[in-house]
Each structure stands twice: as C-alpha cells, then as structure tokens.
C-alpha cells in the first residue's frame, strides 16, 4: 500500500474522528452548563445527586463507559444499540459534559462575591448581574482549562475504536493487520498533531482576544 493510499484511507477515518469530536462538543458544552447549574443548585438533594453523577462519570474510564453504553441496553433491557456511532456520541457527550461542568463550576465560583454586590448596589437585576458581569468573566477564566480539555478530546476520540468506530487509529490498525505494514500506526500521530495544533492556535487566539483586561 502506497503512502498516498494510506493517507486517503486515514482521511476517511479522520471524518469519524472529527465527527465524533464536533458532535461531542455540541452536546457537552451546553449539557455541561446544565450539570453545573444543578451542582450549584441551592437544593442540597439536587446538588448532591448531581455531584454523585459527576463522580461516577469522572471516576470511571471513558473506555468502560463506551462499553456500557454500547452493550448494556442490549444485555439488560433487550434493546441492542444498533448504531455504534450513536453509542460513542452518548458516552463522549456525557463524559465531557461532566468535565466541562466542573470547569464551569470552578469558573463561576471564582468570581468574587464583591462583583455581585457591586451589581446589586447599582440596582442590577440578578439576571443582569449574571449575564453582564459574571458570565463574561467566567468565559475568560475557563478558557485555559477548556482548551486543555478540548485538546484531550481530540485524542480521546481514539478510544471509540473499542466499540468498532472506524476512526483514525482503527483505520491504521486495520491496515496494519491486513497489509502487514506497521508504519501507518505511527503515521496516525501526524493527524492528531495537526488537529491539536489547529486547536492550540485557535485557543491562543481567543485568549489573546480576551487579554485586554485582567481579573
């Protein structure tokens, strides 16, 4: 198999990697906000249940979660998961939402009480304090940990090969086992480096844009 043939089939795998990456972000970014809101809820019951949920998700390997989402519906409920990609999206979406939620929560809690108080004495509504004062600052604060987590996600997508998603690593493994050449496996690194490189540049750009003020 020539270099260009390998590249072409790996690009095919990249489609799944990127698809999983973007759909996970699309789910996890908003869902993480919901989890963070529940974690910060005044109701002790709601916040403890949510914290328990986050503990389970962060406390077990993503690989295990993939397997659970893929096989438990069929084994326990008699409704086999028919779409492997859907299973991957569910597992990744929930897992990353839990991690994002912790980042959001940390960001929200790091805003000093004085900012809320200043808003109140100036006659702001609670809603205005949240939208005009808190969220913009939280946005800046969470950028570094978010960029870290998003770059991790690119690499984590490779775990989806455990349930048979034909992403980059899976593609390379197939080539290795069918064609008897080993180098495509190492070649996958280039694909991940390009993707994480683009993300690094993007996040640096955003952080620079937000650099006009300091908290």
């Amino acid at each position: 198999m020539s270099f260009s043939e390998v590249t072409l089939s790996m690009l095919e795998g990249t489609k799944y990697t990127l698809g999983l990456f973007f759909i996970t972000l699309l789910i996890a970014i908003p869902f993480g906000m919901v989890i963070a809101a529940f974690e910060l809820s005044k109701s002790k019951i709601v916040s403890s249940i949510t914290k328990g949920f986050v503990w389970i998700i962060r406390g077990t390997p993503l690989m295990l979660q993939l397997i659970v989402v893929m096989y438990v519906p069929g084994l326990v409920f008699g409704m086999p998961m028919r779409e492997r990609f859907l299973a991957a999206i569910i597992a990744f979406g929930i897992n990353y939402a839990a991690y994002f939620a912790e980042i959001y929560r940390g960001g929200i809690q790091s805003i000093p009480q004085g900012q809320y108080e200043a808003g109140y004495v100036l006659g702001f509504k609670r809603k205005q304090i949240v939208s005009r004062i808190v969220i913009p600052q939280v946005f800046k604060r969470i950028m570094p940990p978010m960029s870290n987590e998003v770059i991790t996600l690119v690499k984590d997508t490779s775990l989806a090969n455990i349930i048979g998603i034909v992403e980059i690593i899976m593609t390379a493994k197939t080539i290795v086992s069918t064609k008897g050449i080993i180098w495509p496996l190492f070649y996958t690194g280039v694909f991940y480096l390009v993707m994480s490189g683009v993300l690094t540049i993007l996040f640096n750009y955003i952080e620079k844009k937000l650099d006009y003020y300091k908290i």
Partner: peptide
C-alpha cells in the same frame, strides 16, 4: 429602594471587563 443608597466598597469591586 436600594437606589436611594449608593455604596463604595473597600475593595473597589469595579467590573474588570
């Protein structure tokens, strides 16, 4: 009601952004 009052804090509490 609170707009009848104004407050300046020890730690300024300006909005940094």
């Amino acid at each position: 009601r609170r707009l009848h009052m104004g407050m300046v804090f020890q730690s300024f509490n300006l909005f940094p952004h």
